[in-house]
Design a protein around this nucleic acid. Structure first.
Lengths: 217, 217
DNA sequence: TTTTGCACTATACACTTGTATATACATACG
DNA sequence: CGTATGTATATACAAGTGTATAGTGCAAAA
């Protein structure tokens, strides 16, 4: 058919000089994750092909595909932390803190780097190293939220029953709903956001109600 | 080495007559899922080998590995529904309905058929067909729970704010916590159960409190 | 009996995979 | 200049994959 295809190296015909970075490889891998594949389902050759390098050149940057996957998860965690930090700065205004945070979280789904997608996908599958990396990020979320809840309690007088547990419930819920929203069109995502916000309000209302009840006794 | 190995067919040297059922294939696949592999990471040949049949015989029973995976998910859902139904019958006595149900759910993690593991694993990865199948099971859960909540409301007078949403939140939470408990030792699982029970109580308390508040207005 | 259909098998093909080996070419240093 | 060194490359190979084709043996139907 095509007599032009001799080498395996032909991704972006652009005149790249020569040197390819590890980040380039990671970006190439992310681009392959379009639909519903897990990082470790990518083959070394596939990634190399997408990055426009020979298969063996992969080894100059990562030992494994799994090695690259861990690097991706770390990067995703860092990125997500940044998003949350930014959301916290936005929230001092009049809008609902809950809604603002959830929206910030879900907005990340549309970012060009699909970091959130990666986290959501790998949190339930893959090697123990993956899970550990994802779990670290989840706990970071929980801790921050727990701190926020207890701080809020002293200001508003609304104590929370078991702040650590409430935080955990909210965190898991947000991530789960995020996973459900991940493959929806952005306009359909609005409903998921609304649902998530109500769910969180239920948890917080319940935790405060239980706190009141256990204080009366 | 071994001069005996000529054919690809040699799994259980037992004198099986001939006919292999689709269920046999599914069981063979489940046995391969020991550690942390997703169903679709199994190769057709691998499954056929484990079942003791020639690779091509696979096609007599399933079109795809994905086809088999969907069958597995359906079976897992059916099994899980049975467990819950049984738990419901147990619950009319003095114990907490919530705790009883959660315990029944988590107990399923130790069953020989790793049905729950399969559901939990595949719910966040794999082809759209998988997700659809898992989603069907989740929604079944939600619907049952929602019905239960509204029924309870008429009996006890404690209305629930948005029963459908509360059900969704509880369902997602239980599944998420189940996934976290999946690779824990059974004794460490006790804490997860306790946590889950408290989380559910928060949601229900919150939903009832919100119902009261919106009724007063 | 012959015939037909079904469940299964063996062989084969084209393809992808990870990696071993050897080689090109640019830059840096003596 | 020569010569390391690092980065990229092509070629090659054994292993594994999905599946097309062509049987084989056996039970029920004719």
């Amino acid at each position: 058919m095509n007599s032009e295809k001799k080498t395996e190296t032909a991704a972006s015909p652009g005149k790249r000089k020569k040197p390819i970075t590890a980040q380039d490889l990671m970006n190439a891998a992310v681009k392959l994750l379009d639909s519903h594949r897990s990082v470790s389902s990518l083959s070394l050759r596939e990634i190399a092909r997408a990055a426009g390098i020979a298969p063996n050149s992969f080894y100059r940057h990562f030992r494994d595909v799994d090695d690259l996957a861990v690097a991706l998860i770390d990067q995703a965690g860092r990125s997500l932390r940044g998003v949350i930090r930014e959301a916290r700065q936005r929230l001092s205004l009049e809008r609902s803190a809950i809604r603002t945070s959830v929206e910030a979280f879900m907005e990340q789904l549309d970012a060009e780097q699909k970091t959130l997608h990666i986290l959501l996908r790998e949190m339930s599958i893959g090697s123990p190293a993956f899970r550990q990396a994802v779990d670290r990020e989840l706990r970071y979320f929980e801790d921050e939220l727990c701190e926020e809840l207890t701080r809020m309690a002293k200001v508003t007088g609304h104590a929370t029953y078991e702040p650590a547990l409430a935080s955990k419930a909210i965190t898991r819920l947000v991530f789960t709903m995020g996973a459900a929203a991940a493959d929806l069109s952005p306009e359909d995502r609005g409903q998921i956001i609304d649902e998530t916000v109500v769910m969180i309000k239920m948890i917080m209302e319940g935790a405060q109600s239980l706190a009141r009840r256990s204080a009366e006794k």
